[in-house]
Design a protein around this nucleic acid. Structure first.
Lengths: 338, 338
DNA sequence: CTGAAAGCGCTTACAG
DNA sequence: CTGAAAGCGCTTACAG
């Protein structure tokens, strides 16, 4: 799209070679840290390189070596801190392994995701880590595999196919939350937030499992769907409050939804923890300092990211090995909202 | 770092050429959308390409053309939604212009920022947009310019040098907040949060300007510094409450700090809006549904991002033109917290 | 340790 | 419209 500094020719290893009085192979070896070169020569080359302002041309090197050390991370929703936390865990591990990671944001847009994956492929990245956008076809892992690019899927499962995956046990998480709420004597517990997707399915399964275990009837009206955002949670809680005045407890699809619900409770002069029992899901950093602090299900987002990194690294190293699936066991953390 | 699919040789334009019975120049022209080629030939080439599973090798093309259409975005703190919103605004505009944007997260780590910039340089990106980490040297714009890479700085100024910049009028923003609070009869108004950096300086200047305009004395004890996070805001408010019982109003360094303060007020049985007047800064999406909804200074984060994109695009197109500076005028948005 | 040579997969004049 | 040729900046055997 844009030319680099017109009129200015960047220095190449050939320039370095002549400045240091060696051959260009020698320069290349020095740059790559080969042990075949004497310390003295190596030093001379490095000094010459920095003196003439040489910049390593990664494109050329990667083209020639048919390899890359960058990993592409595709994220569906950076506005939800949960995904940011996963990302941070992933990045750290990948950086420690010597990779540079570039991320791209799909914003839950499938077309955008498709374009990004194509660019990553053309770019020849060493691997891909993806939190798939909603409605991503289950065939994606197969497709990317056919491209010959190692990939790990995070957070949202993609059908039952065989692919490396790191996520959390959503079903168990909601069960823990429900057990707590029902144990506290709440006969009617609502489920707030979420619209679609595998994670919602799993969390709703946990909801129903818990009802069943406690021999409580399932009332579909107690499930109030909404976008998994603050705004959605706010609307969902308002709806619940106006339609089911006796219900005094809810578990939320995620912490964002719970924050919105907290806000709606406040609007109505109610406070979670005393007037209403509310449990979130994810345990994002924010949840420790909401008003009031949120009881929630900790899924250790950063651990999910770190484990995803491990899986990807392993896949890159040994493409043929068996697929693995990491499912983080969640834990209920009780604060003030329930 | 990792070889691509060992044993499998990817198709090149040469393979496409022979499959389509044309020369490789023709294939290249078709791929680049040249008008020199007949529709019929073009179609034949495309069919052949997809049939043999050809993948465009962007590295090779960019190496040869000495150009790139990817833009690197360096972000200091993705955990603060404000920066995510800036990013979203930036991305959209850049994508519309046909660029692909990859971002990298520094986490306020200067070394990491340095490494990332170096990789971006070696990668030969078409441009860089950066929200600099705290303590970034003021020489950075000069340095990057000497590399011949167009760059726009976002949000945090970097000294008085000459570089393209998009940010907001922090001083005016805090003045508006203070005018509102003082106008409501609050004689003592605290300033909560922030540790260092140009943005804090500018916001504190606004604080002092407002005091001065209203002939209110400046009391340094009313400035409670803290990390600009929820946790920091929580601690800052607790500190304020315990040391200055008469103070019933505060403006916060940013919305995150304000959220923490809201949480601390709740801990003490107080509610913003009735017991205490609290104003945030940024107007991130979250602030509309906090508990209670936050009065804050809207800086139109996405607009900042979009304008930054414009500046960068202009710089790429015309490297020699005069440097520009976009400063978003803020606006007070009143909700329930003050 | 060093030098000459080939080649990664493209694009770009240039001649037909 | 098409083909042959050169070259982007590296890395990698291979011979010395």
């Amino acid at each position: 799209m844009s030319k680099q500094t017109p009129g200015f020719r960047a220095a190449t290893i050939l320039d370095v070679a002549s400045a240091a009085n060696v051959s260009k192979s020698t320069v290349s070896l020095v740059l790559r840290g080969s042990e075949l070169i004497s310390a003295e020569t190596s030093r001379r080359v490095r000094t010459a390189a920095s003196k003439i302002g040489y910049v390593y041309n990664r494109r050329a090197a990667e083209l020639r070596r048919q390899s890359s050390n960058t990993i592409g991370v595709v994220i569906n929703d950076l506005r939800n801190s949960f995904f940011v936390e996963v990302l941070v865990g992933l990045e750290r591990r990948l950086a420690d392994a010597g990779y540079t990671v570039f991320m791209a944001h799909t914003n839950e847009d499938l077309n955008r995701q498709q374009r990004l994956l194509t660019v990553l492929r053309e770019q020849g990245v060493a691997g891909i880590a993806i939190c798939p956008a909603l409605a991503t076809p289950a065939s994606l892992p197969r497709t990317v595999k056919s491209w010959g690019i190692p990939m790990v899927v995070m957070v949202r499962t993609l059908g039952v196919g065989s692919y490396d995956f790191a996520g959390s046990d959503n079903c168990a998480g909601v069960r823990y939350a429900m057990n707590h709420l029902i144990g506290r004597g709440h006969e009617h517990v609502a489920f707030l937030g979420g619209v679609t997707g595998p994670v919602l399915q799993q969390r709703l399964d946990g909801y129903k499992d818990a009802l069943h275990a406690h021999r409580v009837g399932f009332d579909p009206d107690l499930i109030v769907t909404s976008p998994p955002t603050r705004e959605g949670g706010h609307a969902a809680m308002l709806h619940l409050l106006s339609t089911h005045k006796r219900v005094k407890a809810a578990v939320c699809y995620n912490d964002l939804t719970a924050f919105g619900a907290l806000s709606a409770l406040g609007d109505c002069g109610l406070r979670a923890g005393t007037d209403f029992a509310l449990v979130g899901f994810d345990n994002i950093l924010d949840s420790a300092h909401s008003n009031p602090p949120l009881s929630t299900v900790d899924v250790k987002s950063e651990v999910i990211g770190a484990e995803a990194a491990q899986l990807l690294l392993a896949r890159i190293k040994a493409p043929g090995t068996r697929v693995r699936r990491f499912v983080q066991a969640p834990a209920l953390v009780l604060r003030q909202s329930a």
